[in-house]
């Protein structure tokens, strides 16, 4: 079972109290971008077997979006942080490196 701590309410929210929102930290490519960049923004996603950064919404709770770093293989959660974050916070990156030596972020 996947359990995240909502960074807004501080509760341990079960996966079934949340709604998944796909990959986090996408860069938007809108009008006037190249077709390749727009295609990448719209369709191309990482699908790692391991560490992944994701968007989740606490839909059965406070209703806020937040971001989470977790392992897709073991469901280990490295941390959750506010949705208003464009890059993963350093403390979470350090924690991932501590748990997965040699790990490098995709993308």
């Amino acid at each position: 079972m996947l359990t995240f701590e909502c960074p807004y309410c501080g509760v341990q929210a079960d996966e079934t109290e949340l709604s998944p929102g796909g990959e986090a930290h996408l860069t938007r490519h809108g009008p006037e971008s190249s077709d390749e960049a727009f295609e990448g923004y719209l369709f191309l996603r990482e699908n790692p077997r391991g560490v992944h950064f994701e968007r989740w919404r606490h839909s059965f709770g406070c209703g806020k979006w937040f971001l989470a770093a977790r392992c897709t293989m073991t469901l280990e959660v490295f941390g959750t942080y506010a949705a208003q974050t464009t890059e993963p916070p350093q403390d979470i990156l350090d924690k991932i490196t501590g748990r997965r030596p040699g790990w490098r972020r995709l993308g």
Binding site: V11, Q12, D14, T16, F60
Partner: peptide
């Protein structure tokens, strides 16, 4: 509910928004 309703996690005065079977 999937929420932790033990005395340690949910003491008197604490509010929990959660899911009750299929509804909020």
């Amino acid at each position: 509910t999937p929420a932790d309703v033990s005395a340690a996690a949910w003491p008197p005065g604490a509010l929990r928004r959660t899911r009750l079977a299929q509804v909020a």
